[in-house]
């Protein structure tokens, strides 16, 4: 019987190791799997490389993970947002390294990694500091830079609903990086508000097929980053 449900976020993350590369879904607070990130903090795992579009806000979720000193490197496209003070401090003091990647290149590197493509050429960033030093090639008279696929030991994402096979549907623009990160994680953990029986989700509307999901955690009423920050919350 296939049933990917686990009892808790703590159980889902129990085997994570120091030095892991972790992909974290979300664009700003939309799709940020806050409860899974907090469980990751609880494991004590450190020296992590985080791949995510942003670096969190306030002192909850991703920003709390950074604040706890667990992250040695971030691969992202937009590390500063309103209310983000944790990452700028870590970056300026040299405690967390940054690999800045254009958003579409980040997405395609993740997709490629999950799809078994080791590298690809893209026109993005040609002639800019983010393209400097990269292998360059011309196709039909236009220049492209070589970019490498990304994979992760663990992927943490948030969906709306899943069945016990791990077929997932998302909520609006919370989908963002989650489907491609699900493909690129050796172990992909999804938190959803509701787990339903196989067959309850129309196969025509499944966004992430269950083969890309390993563990499902139910979080019935997930927190929103902005609400936590407004309430003055910090974690732990």
């Amino acid at each position: 019987m296939i049933d990917k449900r686990v009892e808790s976020a703590a159980e889902a993350l129990a085997d994570i190791r120091d030095g892991s590369t972790v992909m974290v879904g979300g664009f700003g607070e939309a799709g940020s799997p806050i409860e899974l990130i907090h469980a990751l903090i609880d494991t004590g795992a450190t020296n992590l490389t985080i791949i995510s579009n942003n670096c969190g806000s306030g002192e909850v979720g991703l920003a709390a993970l950074l604040k706890a000193g667990r992250v040695s490197k971030v691969i992202c496209s937009f590390p500063r947002t309103a209310n983000s003070t944790v990452f700028p401090e870590l970056y300026r003091s040299g405690r967390t390294a940054l690999e800045l990647v254009p958003q579409g290149t980040l997405a395609e590197r993740i997709r490629a990694g999950g799809a078994g493509i080791p590298a690809f050429y893209t026109p993005t960033a040609v002639g800019t500091p983010l393209g400097d030093g990269k292998e360059c090639r011309e196709f039909d008279g236009r220049s492209y830079v070589l970019e490498y696929g990304l994979r992760a030991n663990v992927t943490l994402i948030k969906g709306r609903r899943a069945d016990s096979h791990g077929n997932v549907v998302f909520n609006k623009t919370a989908r963002n990086f989650s489907p491609i990160m699900a493909m690129a994680g050796e172990t992909t953990i999804v938190q959803v508000e509701q787990v339903v029986e196989p067959g309850s989700i129309d196969p025509e509307v499944v966004v992430t097929p269950g083969i890309f999901v390993d563990r499902i955690v139910t979080v019935m009423s997930p927190a929103h980053e902005s609400a936590l920050i407004a309430a003055g919350a910090t974690y732990p």
């Binding site: 496209s77 937009f78 590390p79 990647v101 958003q103 993005t124 960033a125």
Partner: peptide, 20 residues
């Protein structure tokens, strides 16, 4: 980016947009 040394660099999707 203004390229200032203490600025936090952030690019988002701008480079992809102008490329495509």
């Amino acid at each position: 980016s203004t390229g200032e040394p203490d600025a936090i660099p952030a690019v988002g999707g701008a480079m992809d947009l102008v490329a495509g």
